[in-house]
């Protein structure tokens, strides 16, 4: 039975996806202008996943994120201005310029951190789920990671323990097909990562990661299972990244098998698909435009904030090694 959403909910999903989209486009602009130190791994194309999953969470829940983490952070309500300042290495960033794009943390929002090590955050999110179980709260943790992290040992070790102990966690695999340049299909026998769930005795669920409502419904089911003490789910979202591994990666490797691969996936843009869906639900272009305008204003303010923010004083390099 298809879940019924009201107009406000639908517009809220769209707003979140559009916020990610515009944020990442501005990050890309900073890179192209040479204003961004280092690199960034853009979430463009995958917006429906974080949006759908995080909409199934409560404020007190936890998420663990990845090097491609901007979307997860936005979906959890992180401030765009502080994110953008962090990406530019400024003192007003979430981590005062010490973490950058790959390491944004907002503990007050339950964001345990983006993480520069592939698979590095999976046991950390699992530990947060252990805390919830130990304290007897009904909090749930979500661990986001890519298909290629599922070949790291931490994936196996963490899910095995979470399953054995029925920890309240949902493992969300964003299968965008590539670990940098390597096609998952060339290095992994199973074509669905969710198939691995059977080895842990937990449900493995596959969902269209371009369909925010499908993701949301699958996530709600998995979160409900976790919250009620029935343990983890491995939720695989089939998706695609518009850009290369990081900004500046031309990603020509994707044309080896199918020259039209990117084009085909881009036709299934999650925002485009969702706009069509909203129109069917009698949401007008004007209403959509209103949402977009508000987001645009927020994004522009974030860009300005980040540019205006000063760099940290060099003395700050010596702060925060240890807690007092």
């Amino acid at each position: 039975m298809e879940k019924v959403y009201d107009k406000k909910q639908l517009l809220s999903f769209y707003e979140t996806m559009y916020r990610m989209r515009r944020f990442e486009e501005e990050v890309f602009e900073f890179y192209k202008k040479g204003l961004m130190p280092g690199l960034a791994h853009l979430y463009l194309g995958q917006e429906a996943v974080a949006t759908g999953v995080c909409a199934a969470l409560r404020e007190e829940d936890y998420i663990g994120s990845t090097h491609r983490g901007h979307g997860h952070l936005v979906a959890r309500g992180a401030r765009l201005d502080k994110m953008m300042a962090e990406i530019l290495g400024k003192v007003d960033g979430y981590s005062r310029g010490k973490g950058g794009s790959m390491h944004i943390m907002a503990l007050d929002l339950g964001i345990l951190g983006a993480n520069g090590i592939v698979g590095g955050e999976i046991p950390i999110a699992t530990g947060a789920a252990y805390t919830a179980k130990y304290l007897g709260t009904d909090q749930v943790a979500v661990s986001f990671f890519g298909e290629s992290a599922s070949n790291e040992g931490t994936f196996h070790e963490s899910i095995n323990m979470a399953a054995a102990w029925d920890l309240p966690i949902v493992y969300v695999v964003e299968n965008n097909l590539y670990g940098i340049s390597v096609d998952i299909r060339d290095v992994t026998k199973v074509s669905d990562i969710a198939d691995r769930a059977i080895g842990y005795g937990i449900p493995g669920v596959i969902v269209d990661g371009m369909d925010v409502l499908a993701v949301h419904q699958a996530a709600e089911e998995a979160v409900k299972r976790a919250r009620s003490g029935n343990g983890p789910t491995l939720l695989e979202c089939k998706t695609y990244r518009w850009q290369g591994h990081h900004v500046g990666d031309p990603a020509e490797y994707r044309e080896r098998k199918d020259p039209k691969e990117k084009e085909t996936w881009m036709e299934r843009c999650p925002l485009k698909l969702f706009r069509e869906k909203m129109r069917k639900e009698n949401i007008t272009d004007k209403e959509i435009a209103k949402v977009e305008e508000a987001v645009e204003k927020e994004v522009q303010e974030a860009v300005q904030f980040a540019q205006d923010s000063p760099y940290p004083d060099v003395s700050e390099a010596f702060d925060h090694v240890f807690a007092d």
Partner: peptide
């Protein structure tokens, strides 16, 4: 058993879980 946990042989997993527990209010 919840406070003195026999773990599987998963050193990275249990240290990582310790990090997550520490970030969320425990002293593992």
């Amino acid at each position: 058993d919840l406070r003195v946990k026999d773990s599987p042989i998963s050193e990275a997993g249990i240290v990582g879980m310790g990090v997550g527990m520490a970030l969320t209010g425990l002293r593992p």
